[in-house]
Amino acid sequence: MGMSIAHIMASCMGGIRTAGDLVAWMQMTRKMKINDAKAYVAGKLGIDVFDLTDEEVMRDIRKDLGIGTVTSIAGSPKGIRAKIKIAELLGIKIRSVELFKKQIGI
């Protein structure tokens, strides 16, 4: 476990603390190399690539867009509700979201 955390501290984008999950979705769904994936996400968010890993910038963006924040905010989207918004934001299909939408008829 310590090894995984060490890699996260040394090299990771930060997951839902910042924009790591968003960039990961682009690698998974569009086979994007890291720089292309970062540029794509930064473009969708309207920020510089350098700010993708800045908690001070991404915290407010994530809260405002309702795409999930690392601290739990009562009434703020997380989980599948946040992923619906992430899929819309990035223009991608997330398979769990597609199933959920099908189940509730949207």
Partner: peptide, 29 residues
């Protein structure tokens, strides 16, 4: 410890890291 320069971070995916929380020695848990 060291780290990448700001702006050069990459995606850290995993292969069952969450299992390392609850598993035992055989799984590095």
């Amino acid at each position: 410890i060291v780290s990448v320069n700001p702006g050069e971070e990459v995606i850290v995916s995993d292969d069952g890291c969450t299992m390392s929380f609850y598993s035992g020695q055989d799984g590095g848990g």
